[in-house]
């Protein structure tokens, strides 16, 4: 068990380091932030001074080593634009993003899983068809189309809800809905197929045949076994709590991480972009790690396999 946990943690750390390295190399190779920051008509001396001040005149590998060394001492760099700590800027924006993504995740789990399980237990019923249809739409409507359709219906035609900004709680409704509708469909579809597969297993037939009440068969035998694939999808959704809002935030002018990312990318604010990428990668990797560890707890068979 200890070996299982430690190899998973090691792999998670390697993945984060790989993302950091990839981001660092790609961002440094892709053009000179000095030109974007200072504008096109500055004298060469100012450009050189800027590059020297930010260490951009050093060879790439020296910059990289310095960057990694700084990260291990908790220094994530300084924003070239605001001269503030990059990590500070990023952390300030996180609550706004979570205000949207956590309620959206809640809706997905609370509506999606029960709908999928119900559909699996009542196949060919109206609910089942509804879940399949909703899931297909969830897969096929991109969030920006969904967001704009909701704005068109609820803000422009009906005039019920605001279409952008973050002033009142009503402002959060449309973005949260935009993010959750697709996810509800996807989660319902996965729960449905996981449940259908489990219900076809011999042990379910055995449990029913020995006269166990239907409720107990579903709750004690079927659901725990269907949990592994469902937990995988929910874990993936938790992992994208920060990354999942980029498009939606930009539709609804919501001042979260996504907006900061789009702005910093346009300004070539290297340190801030790297910080955001690090945060996003870390959330994804950590939630994958938790899911991996949960597997062992949910399904003892997987624990036994990994021990060998």
């Amino acid at each position: 068990m200890l070996r299982f946990v430690s190899t998973r943690i090691l792999r998670a750390l390697i993945t984060i380091l790989a993302v950091l390295t990839f981001a660092f190399v790609v961002l440094r190779m892709s053009g000179d932030p000095a030109q974007v920051m200072l504008g096109p008509d500055v004298p060469q001396e100012s450009v050189d001074a800027f590059r020297k001040a930010w260490g951009l005149d050093q060879p790439l590998w020296i910059q990289y080593l310095a960057y990694i060394k700084a990260i291990f001492t908790g220094d994530f760099g300084v924003s070239m634009r605001d001269k503030a700590s990059a990590m500070q800027l990023v952390i300030e924006r996180i609550p706004a993003t979570l205000q949207l993504t956590i309620p959206a995740l809640f809706l997905k789990v609370v509506i999606g899983i029960p709908a999928g399980v119900y559909a699996a237990l009542h196949r060919q019923s109206a609910v089942d068809r509804g879940v399949i249809l909703a899931a297909i739409f969830g897969f096929t409507i991109p969030s920006f189309v969904m967001g704009l359709l909701l704005v068109l219906i609820f803000s422009i035609t009906l005039g019920l809800l605001p279409s952008g900004g973050q002033d009142t709680w009503q402002h959060g409704i449309l973005p949260t809905l935009t993010m959750s509708i697709g996810g509800i469909g996807i989660l319902a579809r996965f729960s449905r197929s996981a449940m259908i597969e489990v219900m076809g297993q011999p042990y379910i037939r055995t449990a029913s045949a020995k006269g166990m009440p239907w409720q107990d068969v579903v709750w004690r035998h079927a659901l725990p076994n269907a949990a592994v694939p469902i937990v995988t999808i929910v874990g993936f959704m938790v992992g994208s709590l920060i990354a999942g809002a980029v498009v939606v935030e930009s539709i609804f002018s919501w001042p979260g991480i996504g907006r900061l990312l789009v702005v910093s990318v346009t300004n070539r604010d290297l340190a801030v972009v790297q910080c955001i990428l690090l945060m996003i990668a870390a959330t994804m990797v950590v939630s994958n790690l938790i899911v991996d560890l949960l597997y062992g707890w949910l399904d003892p068979r997987l624990r036994a396999q990994s021990a060998h």
Binding site: T15, F22, V26, G31, V246, L261, V265, T266, L277, A281
Partner: peptide
């Protein structure tokens, strides 16, 4: 594994913005 853990949309956003 690395590819699966990469926030792909975010990465491509950065790459496209920086390279043009």
């Amino acid at each position: 594994d690395f590819q699966a853990a990469l926030p792909f949309l975010i990465m491509s956003l950065a790459v496209l913005a920086f390279f043009g």
